[in-house]
Design a protein around this nucleic acid. Structure first.
Length: 227
DNA sequence: TACTGATCATTC
DNA sequence: GAATGATCAGTA
């Protein structure tokens, strides 16, 4: 069955899962052709290509907005690149680290928690030895954090946000956090955003983002495909 | 070889 | 410039 991109978002989780099931097992050459797009020769110059292709293929609505990808459903779409052993190959970007947001002080209202309330994970074959066009799309899984997973994320988030709120930028590195980490999130290392330092003075620092470590996303896969 | 810090494309 | 989508690549 061949078709083009959806122009309307799915109206239920069930409909979204059916769309995801329809592209599972396809290679990128096939999906890209259906959507009338060339497959980039080099992923180095097309880092977000897979995510954006999947958004179009499934009818996501909020590209490049600070909203869930499927606004009506409150579902976030995440591709999950897997190495040759079927394990996550990269950490997963979640959202930016708030620099001046006073409504971000509590876990319950945090962007991170909101983003991860409901996620459609799409595993992607990402063995670097395979050309991009030949890599396969996996079976999607719709996930919400278990109480245990939410507690793990909350512990890390609170530890990290303490450093953020105290303006201790020099101490903050990707080494903090068991499952969640903070890393640069910018076009390049000269990009600066406004923040406050540990003495409360305005300063300019590299923008940061929250990332899920592969240990965490591996657990999601194990939990789902165990049974 | 895994991990951290740096980087790339696109849209608004 | 800042948000989205991420992966690259040097080095520990």
């Amino acid at each position: 069955m061949s078709r083009s991109a959806y122009t309307t978002p799915p109206d239920s989780e069930q409909a979204l899962l059916e769309r995801a099931r329809a592209i599972a097992g396809q290679r990128f050459a096939e999906l890209a052709e259906q959507l009338g797009e060339p497959v980039p020769a080099e992923q180095r110059h097309a880092k977000g290509w897979i995510g954006q292709l999947l958004e179009r293929a499934l009818g996501a609505s909020a590209a490049s907005l600070p909203e869930p990808d499927f606004q009506q459903l409150g579902v976030e779409l995440k591709s999950l690149p897997l190495n040759a052993n079927g394990l996550p190959r990269e950490s997963t970007y979640v959202c930016t680290v708030p620099m001046n947001e006073t409504n971000q002080l509590r876990w319950e209202r945090s962007w991170l928690r909101l983003k991860l309330q409901r996620v459609l994970w799409i595993p992607i074959e990402a063995d670097p030895r395979l050309p991009l066009a030949q890599r396969c799309i996996g079976n999607a899984l719709l996930w919400s954090p278990s109480p245990g997973q939410e507690a793990m994320l909350r512990d890390d988030w609170e530890e990290l946000m303490e450093l953020v709120c105290l303006g201790r930028w020099e101490e903050l590195s990707a080494r903090h956090g068991r499952y969640l980490q903070i890393r640069p999130k910018a076009a390049h290392s000269r990009v600066l955003t406004e923040a406050h330092d540990s003495e409360g003075n305005l300063c300019r620092i590299l923008p940061r983002g929250f990332y899920l470590r592969t240990d965490f996303t591996r657990q999601i896969l194990e939990q789902h495909y165990a049974g």
